[in-house]
Every structure is written in C-alpha cells, then in structure tokens.
Write a protein that binds this DNA or RNA. Sequence first.
DNA 1: TATAATTTTGTGCTCGTACACAAGTTGCAC
DNA 2: GTGCAACTTGTGTACGAGCACAAAATTATA
Lengths: 366, 366
Amino acid sequence: MSEIKKKDERIRLKDIAVLANVSAGTVDRVIHNRGGVAPESKKRIEEILSELNFKPNKMAQLLATKKGYKLVVLLPEAVRGDYWWDIIKGIKRAEEEVADYHVKTEILRFNQYSMESFASLAQRLLELNPAGVLMAPFFRREVLRLTKELEERSIPFVFVDSNVESVNSLAYYGQQSHQSGYVAAKIMLTKLEQFSTILLVHMLRTGSSAISSNQTTKREEGFLAYLEKYSLESFYRIIRVDLHAEDESGNEEKLDGVFNQNPDIRGIIMFNSRIYRIADFLEKRGIRNIRAIGYDLLERNVHYLKNGMVECLIAQRPQLQGYYGLTALARHLAFKQPSKPICYMPIDILFKENINDYKVYPFDVE
Amino acid sequence: MSEIKKKDERIRLKDIAVLANVSAGTVDRVIHNRGGVAPESKKRIEEILSELNFKPNKMAQLLATKKGYKLVVLLPEAVRGDYWWDIIKGIKRAEEEVADYHVKTEILRFNQYSMESFASLAQRLLELNPAGVLMAPFFRREVLRLTKELEERSIPFVFVDSNVESVNSLAYYGQQSHQSGYVAAKIMLTKLEQFSTILLVHMLRTGSSAISSNQTTKREEGFLAYLEKYSLESFYRIIRVDLHAEDESGNEEKLDGVFNQNPDIRGIIMFNSRIYRIADFLEKRGIRNIRAIGYDLLERNVHYLKNGMVECLIAQRPQLQGYYGLTALARHLAFKQPSKPICYMPIDILFKENINDYKVYPFDVE
DNA sequence: TATAATTTTGTGCTCGTACACAAGTTGCAC
DNA sequence: GTGCAACTTGTGTACGAGCACAAAATTATA
C-alpha cells in the first residue's frame, strides 16, 4: 500500500512509478533513456512525466550519481575583453553549474590563424579521450577530420560561433550573421543622409587571406541584402577598403587616402569586432561627423560607444553560446536529454544610451 | 572495521566519527550544537572537525533536512502576455529551481488600481508568516506599513519593478525607467523629419487617475530629458492626448480629433505597454506614415512590430526580475548568500529586424 | 509442450546527513 | 544492592534518485 504524494508535496520519481503502475527502476530507465522498457510502458510513463512536469530532485541526483565526465573545449586563444573571452566566460559559468554533476572541463586554445595549431590540438584532444567536445569549427578540412574521428568513437560534439552543417553535431549555438548584418544596415541607413558614401572596412591577415571569416562574409551579405530589399543602392555609394591587421601605419595611410578621395563618407561599418581601430583613427584625426557601426562588446569598442565615436554596436551574447554549448553536452551525457540542434542568439542593439546596464544574465551579475 | 576515506575523497561526517571514536550521531550533535554530548567528546570532535576543516555535503544536507521556507509573492493581477505575466514566468522558473531547497512559493495578486486590494492582501501575507517576501511596491503608504512590519519580524523582502529606496530591502531588481525613455527618444528622433509633431499618448483609468504609474512618468521624463539634452525642443512639437483604458470608442473619437487637427504627426509614443491600441487604430484608419514606439513585448505588440505598424519596442526583461528576485531570497535563506542590493535590467531595443530570435534566456529555450 | 533466449520489470543497496528513539552508562538515594 | 533519573552514546531509518542484479514475463526454438 504505497501512498502517493501528500498534498502539495513535490512529485517524486516514486510517485510517477505508482501512477504508472511500475517500479521506480522502470521510471528511472525511461528518464535516462536507458532502454529495456516496453514501448507502451515507456509511452505511459513519458505521458505522466510530462503531464506532471516531473523534475528530479537535484540533491538526490547529485548524491546518488557516481560517474563523472571529462569534456574538452577547443577554442581560439582569447584575450581579456574579446569575443572568445566572453564565450569562455559562459563556459566557466556552465562549468560551475555542472561541476556538481561531476563534469570536468579542459580548455584547449589554438591560434586561430594557424591551421597547424588547430590540427595539433585536435590531435591532443583525441588523446584526452573526452566524453564530449565543444568547439569553434575553424579550418573546415581539419574540422571534418576531427569530427569524423569523434563520430566513430561516438563522442558527442557541439559547435559554437559558426556551424558546419554537413556534420552530425549534437547542437549548434551561434550567431545569425546574415540577419545581424541586415540589422546593422537598418540602423546605419535610418540615420544617414542620402547620397552620401558608406565605407565598408575589411580587415585581413597576411598569410591567411583565404580565411576571410564566414561570419563577416555573411554579415556583409546581410548588410547588402537590406539595401537591395529597400532599393537603396542608388541612394548610397558603397566603397570598400582592405586593412591589414598587422600593419597599423599602413592602415592609417590607406584610410587617409580613402577619406581624401571621398569627403562625403558619412557611415563606416566593420563586420568583425575591430571597429575600435577605426574609432582610434577617427579620434586621432578629429573626424566626428561619421557614424561608425561595429560588432561585439569588446572593452575598447564599448569605450568608443560610450564616448560617441562609435554610434552602435551589435552583439550576440557570446557568453550564452559557451554556456549553452557546455550545458547541452552535460545534459546529454548525464541525463540523455536532447537538445535543440540549432539555437540562434538574439541580436542585441547597443547605443550609448542603453549600454550602461547591459548585462548578459546570469554571467555578469551576482 | 570501518575504513576511513580513500585517497583524495572528501571527508565525511562518518570519517570524523571514526577518528573520534564515536558514532555519527554524536558528531552530528556537536556540529549542530544540539547538546547532550560529554564535554570531552565534544572537545575532541571539535578539534578533529576544525583540523580536517570538515564541510558537510550540502547535497546530502538538503536531502536529509526537512525544514523548508515559505515565500510569499505580492504582485498585481496578470493576464496572459502582459508585463506581470512575464514577471510571474520568471518566478515560476525560479520556483522550480529552488524547490530542491524546500522553498515553496505562494503568489498573491492584487488589483493594481485598488489600494484596498493591496492592503488586504498585505494583511493576508502577514498572516501567512512567510520566510521571505517578493513584492511589487504599489501604494507607497501601504508598502511602508507592510515593510515596517516585515522588518520588525526580520522577514527579508525583495522589490521588483520599482524600488522604494527609503526602506531596507534585501534587493531590488527592476527597470531603469528614466533611461529607457531616453532611449526611446533617441530612436524616435533619429528617425524623424524635423518640424513635425510627436504625439505622447497617456492611458488613464477612470477613478484612479491619481496613480499614474511611477514607471510611465519616469519614462516620459527620460524622453523629454533627451530632447532637452540635445536642444531639440524647438525642432519638434510635442502634443499629448489622454485616453481612457475602458472607453474604446471614446478613444477613437479623440484620436480622430487629434489627427485632424495635427496632420503633421509623424511620431507616436506610449510609455506603458499598450501601444498595440494605437496600432489597432492606425491600422484601422490605414495610416502608415507614422512611427510608433512602445514598451514591453506583449504578444499583440510583437504582432504589430512584425507587421510594421509599430517601429520599435523597448523591453526590460521582466522575466529576469521575477527570476532573480526569487532566487535572491532563496539563496539568502537557504545559503545565507548575499545579493547585490540594486540590479537594473538591460534596456533591449527591438525592431522588426531583430525580434525574431529574441529570447530571454533561460526562459524561452530548452 | 518444455526449455532456452530475450525482453521487461522489480528489488535492494548506495550516496552523506538529520533526527528520533533505543540503549547504554553513571551517580545517587534509599 | 536495587531503583531511578540524568546524562551520554549508538542505531536505524528517511531523504530521492542511480544502478547493478535478481526475478518475472514474454517470445522464440526444439
């Protein structure tokens, strides 16, 4: 004679078992997708589970569970305040939360401009024989090689930042690059006097020009798509300039040249996170009648947003990518819980006026 | 023959017991200062305890302990899709998470236009003798009376939505109303042709005109502050109209009148969440050359944002207010963890172009 | 139809702590 | 020496879920 839960007590696994006319063991098997349950039992139990919105008692879970998982994260090297730094921030946060589930994390950082670096860390990763992998997929060929091996070993993996669709990842958490370019265009153009010139700034790396990032390309496409959509191409003149990441003085010269030849530039946009470089330049030259738009809340970008040199920054919550990427893995491993395969981040629009208390919860509080 | 902990395993109460040559029960008595232990045993145990720096396993503690906390939430009545609804969504989410800590929640909903309603529920709240309180402080006098009593009983309380600074609350999670009005103005004015008219729409309740909400007042102040800051007062004509929440046809008449007398209206803003009412009207009349800006992501507002009748919506993550408010209380009670006393929500700017994957994590995913 | 193979389900112990209750010890009065 | 109270200590079960293993039910095979 087992009693079902008393009034307003929390539902336990045992209660589910009683209601479904099975034992606790069976319910547990269903919850963890551990197999060996008759289809009809499974269905019945699942119905009750979802109907009662059963949430296992975390304390009991943690106390009872013994096995641990080692996850490995493969990301570009990060420096304080940049985009990857924020992703790692999210990962750290997730780490704290899943530490209770005996999940441990190791982060490998590669040089994002060196394929060799990526490849050798991929090798190292495999040697660590992780239970799951979180990675930013750079260098397509290497990524394919790595994921092939992971699939063979049945090691689940998650992508952040950008996606590789042809591969069977557990999940992808990332940006909507095209759409964010579209948003940037909207902001740029509602602001701009007609028949002026807009400068698109590209930033190349010597020796790796091939890898003009997927993200930035898509953002630019989105930007242009907006112009086309609203048939604005004839009202604005779009020009481009290619800068080189390593060549500061060369860049200045180039920009000087561009500005001399195009005195009617009123808007500047960069599709990567380096708009602060442009702001540096503008500030140096004392140019203040130009609206600059950029991406990502690097500290230096935020600085220029606050002081007005940059008009608008667009951000896509990198912290969440790391956070949700890691928790997705942990949930998959520890609880066999499914994840949404693709999850896009919101596109945040930041002006001087709303940057101040901008925080990405729960990463920037407490 | 009991074995003491294996290598690098965490020390358990039981290990202490073995080392002190007593049973677990006795150690437990010492730890909880529950008395009935021989002085020398006590001393010996305490020494071992501090020497090994014993920390009881939180999980096991929470699992074993029976005592729980009852929290009471005092909020205005909410209807699906409105602002308070989202706050409650966050509270529900937090509720699930803290249920493991034996924290229970009861929500009391008052009529936000009736002081009597607030007062009587405040009374009811006190009768429930909660361990902590989360509330939206309406009706200053009543709030002060309530919080005074709570302070006397040492019951911690948290404010959401708006703050009452003169009172010693555990924390406040809420909006930056003034600043969000400022942001609204920025968006309105960068968009607008000069020397046109901007219509500020107020929505009154019959019988409660006195309580024009604190939030909306501050938003309007922020809006006007922006104009002043950039000396734009002379470039735009600001007019106002007062509508009545209950009088739909009367409102239409009024609006018709306003539009007839002011054919140069190019911008409309409402400082509460009812901009959809204006959008209803504009759509009905087929007026499409006006930029409307409003607050909060009510379903109906989002609808009009997507179809272009509303240009921009400003949101302040009400879910987070509820979520963090409740977890702050729970953490304070169950773990004695401190909270930041004041925590402002980010001001989110939503256009048609970035509304689509806008989600407030972790409320809208999984 | 009996028996083996397989699928499905139930049982019981575990995790580390709390706490009620039982049991043991001591001292003192008679 | 017995009885009894006060003090001290030990024991057992509960908490809720995980998981290995036992047991039962079903299906396949001879």
